[in-house]
Nucleic acid binder design. Structure first.
Lengths: 341, 341
DNA sequence: AAACAAGATGATAGCGCTATCATTGTCAAT
DNA sequence: ATTGACAATGATAGCGCTATCATCTTGTTT
C-alpha cells in the first residue's frame, strides 16, 4: 500500500528513467535544448512522445517562479470592439507558448483591482490592461509588478510601461470636422456606456464644434446604459424630437449609428439629406449598410496584435525602442454624410 | 548571503508565524473554516489582511492536484453568438472562486485537441466545450478526464457527460415552416462558415421544404467564408440573380440576414412583399432594423449561465439530475416575413 | 605533460502549499 | 476512575518541477 498521493501522471522523472538520464537533463532538453547534446535531446523527445508526457504548469510555476500566462483585463467580453482586439491578441499568442488569461472588469474599478490582484498572484509573464484611467490602487499594483505591462485602446501621457492605442479625442474631433466640412450645421452627439474613452470622444466633438463656434450642449445626449442598436434609435428620436433643427449626429459607436439609421428610415428622415450620421469604429457592417455609414476606422485587431507582440518581446528581454505606439485612425466617408458629394 | 531562491512573497508560513499557529492550520482556516475553531479563523483572517497574503495558486494546484480553473473551448472569440455565451459564463463564474481559461479552437479539430491537451495538463476543475462533433481523439481525451465536462450549443444523443443546448435542426425547420406558412414559395438558404451547427440548420431547412414538397437544391448557397454583413448582401444578390423567382431566404445567421436586407434596399426589392428574410439567433439589432427582421431566438446567455452552473455544481459533488438540458428556441416573427400579416 | 576552459550532466534542495497520520485535550458514558 | 469518541491542532512528507552548485569529460593551450 503506497500511502503517498501520486497523481498517476507521467512525470519528468519517468521520462528521465526511460531515457537513461537525470530529470534535470530532461528539463533542460525540453526548455533549453542548446544546453544539452543533440542526441540526448533527440532521445528525450522520443521518450516524451512514447510516454505522452505533458509538463505540469503548476510545478513549473512553483519551481521557477514564472508562468506562461499573459493576463488581459478588458471591461467587456461582449462588446464588438473588444472582441476584435481579442482576436488580434489570440492571433499573436497562438503561435507561441504563452497562454491568455482573460479578466472582465465590467467597467468597475473595484473589479479591476481584484482581477489585478488575482492575476499578480499567478506571477504572470506579462499583463495587458485596457485604458489609461486605472484607479490609484490599480496603478500602484501595476507599477510594482515585475513583469512587462501594456496599456491598450488609448494613447496618453505617462504610461505605466508600454502603450498601444490611438487618441479618441482627436478621432472624434476629426469626425466632427468632417461633418462640418460636409455642410452640416447643427451637429448632435449621442453616447452610451460613458466610459473614459467615450468621454474623450465627447471632448473631441466639443473641441471641433467650439472651434467652429457652433457648440450647443443641448445637442448632446448621453446615457450610462450599455449601447445597443435599439438604444441608438431611441436616442436619435429623442434628440430629434427635442431639437428638430438637428441635421447631423456623431454617434459614440457603430451600434448607435446603425440604430439611428434605422430610426430615420422608419420616420422617413432622409439620410444624408436631412440628417447626416457618423459612427465610430467602422465595424464591418458600416460599409454594407444602405445607405453606407460614415465611421471612424480604428485598428482594433492590429492593436491586439501589436500589443501582444510588444509584450512578448519585452518578456523575452528585447524591450522595444518605441514603448508608446499610436496606431491612428481614419475617417471613412460614406453615403450617410454625403450631403455635398 | 542566502543562496536559496525565495520570491519575496508573503507565504502561508508567514501568516502562521504571526498568528501563532502552524501553517496547516492557516491553510485549513482559509479553505475549511469549519475544521478550525472560530477564534483561530478570526485571528488568521486578521493577519491575512495585515500582511496582504494572497495564496499561490500554483503551489495549491501542485499540492492538492486540483485547480479552480474552468477550461472553456469555443471556436471563435469574435462571433457574436459566442460572446453572448461568454457573457453568461462570466456572469455565473464571477461570483465564485473559479477562474475561466478560454481557448479558441478556430474551427479546427487539431487546434481543439491541442487545447484540450493543454487544459487537461492543468488539471482543470471542469471543462466546457462547444458542439457535439469532437474528433475521435478529442472525444477520448474528454472521456478519460477526471473532471466534469459540459458540451454546449447543441443537443444530441450520447453526451460525454453533461450537455446544454438546443436543436439547430429543429430550429431551422421551424423557421422554414414559418416562411412556408407566410405564403412564400421559393425559399432559399444562404449559409457561411459551414460548421456542424450550420450544417444541421441546413438539414432542418431541407426537412421542412421536403415535407412541403418544395425542396430545390438550386436555392441553396453556402460558403466556408466567415460570415459578415457584406457577405450576406453578396450571397443574396447572387442567389437572386441565379434564381429571380426566389421569394424568401432563410439566413444561417443574423449578420447574413442584415446584409440581405441592405442588399434588397439597395436594389429596390421590397421586403417582405417581394422577398421574405429570416435570420438566426435573434441578435438585438434584428428588432431594431427597419423593417424589423424575423429571426430564431436562441438563449445564448442563458446557455452559458446554465452550463456554468451545472458544471460548478458537478465539481462540488452535486451532480444535477438532468444532465442534458434543451433550452429550446423561438421563431420571432417580424416585419421582414409579414407577407400576410 | 600539466593546466585550464568550456561543455555536458548530475546531486541536492527547495518553490508554497496540502494530504495524511499523529497527538493532545475535552467530555460523556460506563 | 477508566474508556472511548470526537474536536482541534500539529509534524511530516511530498506534489513535479527547476535553480544552484558540483562533477566529470573533452579538447586546447603552453
Amino acid at each position: 500500500m503506497n500511502k503517498r498521493r501520486k497523481s498517476g501522471r507521467v512525470t519528468l522523472s519517468d521520462v528521465a528513467r526511460k531515457a537513461g538520464v537525470s530529470p534535470i537533463t530532461v528539463s533542460r532538453a525540453l526548455r533549453n535544448p542548446d544546453m544539452v547534446s543533440s542526441d540526448v535531446v533527440k532521445r528525450v523527445q522520443q521518450v516524451v512522445g512514447e510516454l505522452g508526457y505533458v509538463p505540469d504548469p503548476a510545478a513549473r510555476a512553483l519551481a521557477s517562479q514564472r508562468t506562461d500566462v499573459i493576463g488581459v483585463i478588458i471591461p467587456s467580453v461582449t462588446n464588438n470592439v473588444f472582441s476584435d482586439v481579442m482576436r488580434g491578441i489570440y492571433a499573436c499568442v497562438e503561435e507561441t507558448n504563452y497562454r491568455v488569461q482573460l479578466g472582465n472588469s465590467r467597467y468597475s474599478e473595484r473589479e479591476e483591482e481584484k482581477l489585478l490582484q488575482t492575476f499578480i498572484s499567478q506571477r504572470p509573464a506579462g499583463l495587458m490592461i485596457s485604458g489609461i484611467d486605472q484607479s490609484h490602487a490599480a496603478r500602484l499594483l501595476l507599477e510594482s509588478v515585475s513583469c512587462p505591462v501594456v496599456q491598450i485602446m488609448e494613447t496618453g501621457p505617462d504610461p505605466v510601461d508600454m502603450m498601444v492605442g490611438f487618441s479618441h479625442r482627436d478621432a472624434a474631433r476629426t469626425a466632427t470636422e468632417h461633418l462640418i466640412a460636409q455642410g452640416y450645421e447643427r451637429i448632435g452627439f449621442i453616447g452610451a456606456r460613458m466610459d473614459p474613452r467615450t468621454a474623450r470622444r465627447l471632448e473631441g466633438y466639443g473641441d471641433a464644434l467650439r472651434a467652429a463656434g457652433r457648440y450647443d450642449k443641448g445637442l448632446v445626449r448621453t446615457t450610462r446604459q450599455r449601447s445597443t442598436v435599439t438604444l441608438g434609435s431611441e436616442m436619435l428620436l429623442e434628440l430629434k424630437a427635442a431639437r428638430p433643427d438637428l441635421d447631423a449626429v456623431l454617434c459614440n459607436n457603430d451600434d448607435l449609428a446603425l440604430g439611428a439609421l434605422f430610426a430615420c428610415r422608419r420616420q422617413g428622415i432622409d439620410v444624408p439629406g436631412e440628417l447626416g450620421i457618423c459612427g465610430f469604429n467602422d465595424l464591418e457592417m458600416m460599409a454594407a449598410a444602405c445607405p453606407s455609414i460614415t465611421s471612424v476606422r480604428t485598428c482594433r485587431e492590429e492593436m491586439g496584435e501589436r500589443a501582444t507582440g510588444m509584450l512578448i518581446r519585452a518578456i523575452e528581454g528585447e524591450r522595444p525602442a518605441e514603448t508608446a505606439v499610436d496606431l491612428g485612425f481614419e475617417v471613412i466617408a460614406r453615403e450617410s454624410t454625403a450631403r455635398r458629394g
